[in-house]
Amino acid sequence: MAVIMYGIPNCDTIKKAKRWLDEQNIDYTFYDYKKQPVTAELVDGFFEQLDWTQVVNKRGTTYRQLDDATKQNLASDNAAELLISNPSMIKRPILSVDGELTLGFKPDLYAQLFQR
Results as ranks from 00 to 15, higher is better:
33 Y>T: 00
104 G>A: 12
56 V>Q: 07
86 N>R: 14
49 Q>I: 03
48 E>A: 02
4 I>C: 06
98 D>L: 04
103 L>E: 08
52 W>N: 02
29 T>I: 12
68 D>P: 03
89 M>D: 10
94 I>M: 05
5 M>G: 03
71 K>N: 08
62 T>K: 11
60 G>Y: 05
7 G>N: 12
35 K>S: 12
74 L>Q: 09
54 Q>F: 02
12 D>G: 11
20 W>L: 09
56 V>E: 06
9 P>K: 14
58 K>L: 06
94 I>V: 15
4 I>K: 10
39 T>M: 02
33 Y>A: 02
85 S>Q: 15
62 T>Y: 12
41 E>K: 01
24 Q>R: 07
88 S>P: 04
64 R>G: 10
15 K>E: 13
72 Q>K: 15
57 N>S: 08
90 I>D: 11
41 E>Y: 00
43 V>A: 01
48 E>T: 01
9 P>E: 13
103 L>C: 07
92 R>H: 09
77 D>S: 11
75 A>G: 11
24 Q>E: 15
72 Q>C: 04
99 G>F: 03
36 Q>E: 15
81 E>R: 09
87 P>T: 10
11 C>L: 11
100 E>D: 11
34 K>Q: 12
27 D>A: 15
65 Q>L: 13
8 I>Q: 05
80 A>H: 06
52 W>L: 01
12 D>S: 14
93 P>W: 12
94 I>H: 03
100 E>P: 00
70 T>F: 04
89 M>L: 07
97 V>E: 07
87 P>W: 05
16 K>L: 09
85 S>L: 08
19 R>A: 15
9 P>T: 10
74 L>Y: 09
13 T>F: 07
32 D>F: 01
28 Y>R: 04
81 E>A: 15
49 Q>R: 00
102 T>H: 12
52 W>E: 09
21 L>G: 04
15 K>L: 09
69 A>Y: 06
49 Q>M: 03
68 D>S: 14
66 L>Q: 14
4 I>E: 13
86 N>L: 10
7 G>Q: 11
90 I>M: 09
8 I>L: 15
48 E>H: 00
26 I>S: 06
103 L>Y: 05
51 D>R: 00
56 V>L: 07
93 P>T: 13
14 I>L: 08
56 V>P: 04
97 V>P: 01
11 C>P: 04
31 Y>P: 02
40 A>D: 11
65 Q>S: 14
90 I>P: 02
108 D>Y: 00
93 P>H: 13
108 D>M: 03
87 P>Y: 08
75 A>S: 15
61 T>K: 12
20 W>N: 10
103 L>R: 00
